[in-house]
């Protein structure tokens, strides 16, 4: 299954949750933020090379990190040469070779955010527990609906107090999972220690597991 982790606004924690979901489900995490990648990369081919036709998607996957990852390059020239029209084929190649893929989508509403949703079987919309973030989550949800990516769950990320889950569920029409603010989650990508593995019983760890179970139920259905 290809799962898109989307959300209109930048900085709501899409990459972090995609990383955690990859760790929790064993899926390959694809950093599809072609313009502003933020998951760790290293030497070797990356998504820019794949989208420019210089490498195959499967050879760009790194299996040596804490999470199996297809990273993305960070150069402007690479972003310019990348043809987002190749993204669908790349994601399907990864899915064929590894079974599941979690796609970290870029912010915004351009084609680089739309194509992963068009390819994906389902999506998780990440929202921040603030009123202004809800509007972006709604727009992303609409886009996902138009492009036929079913909404598995809404992740209300970095919640400090109890956010109004019911409001999110009613507006977006999918179960909401609150992921409490936890500095370990924020650092997980950097330290390479996903919270769902190093602190599975923490509130954040439990929230991520419940998100992963929702994804799992959806992929079996």
């Amino acid at each position: 299954m290809i799962l898109a982790v989307a959300g209109g606004k930048g900085g709501v924690g899409k990459s972090t949750l995609a990383f955690e979901l990859g760790a929790a489900t064993g899926a390959v995490v694809v950093d599809a933020d072609v313009g502003m990648a933020d998951l760790p990369t290293g030497p070797g081919p990356d998504l820019h090379d794949v989208l420019a036709g210089r490498a195959s998607a499967v050879e760009a996957v790194r299996e040596d990190g804490p999470v199996t990852l297809l990273p993305c390059g960070r150069s402007l020239a690479g972003a310019r040469a990348a043809d987002v029209g190749r993204l669908g084929e790349a994601l399907r190649d990864v899915e064929r070779a590894y079974g599941d893929a979690v796609v970290d989508c870029p912010a915004g509403m351009r084609a680089d955010a739309g194509v992963p949703l068009a390819v994906a079987d389902a999506c998780v919309v990440v929202a921040s527990p603030r009123p202004y973030a809800l509007a972006d989550a709604v727009r992303t949800r609409e886009l996902a609906r138009e492009l036929d990516a079913g909404l598995v769950a809404v992740a209300v990320n970095r919640a400090v107090d109890d956010p109004p889950e019911a409001v999110f569920e009613e507006v977006l029409g999918a179960p909401a999972v609150t992921v409490p603010a936890d500095p370990r989650v924020a650092r997980a990508v950097e330290t390479g220690r996903p919270v769902c593995r190093v602190a599975p019983s923490s509130r954040a760890g439990r929230a991520i597991s419940s998100l992963a179970r929702a994804v799992d139920r959806c992929s079996r259905a």
């Binding site: 313009g35 402007l76 987002v84 029209g85 993204l87 084609a111 739309g114 194509v115 068009a118 492009l147």
Partner: peptide, 22 residues
């Protein structure tokens, strides 16, 4: 074809050529 439809409708997000250093 939803992928191509998405590209047509949403527009590519790539840096303009002038912005890319050579």
């Amino acid at each position: 074809d939803r992928e191509n439809e998405a590209i047509r409708a949403l527009g590519r997000a790539r840096p303009p050529a002038d912005a890319v250093p050579v």
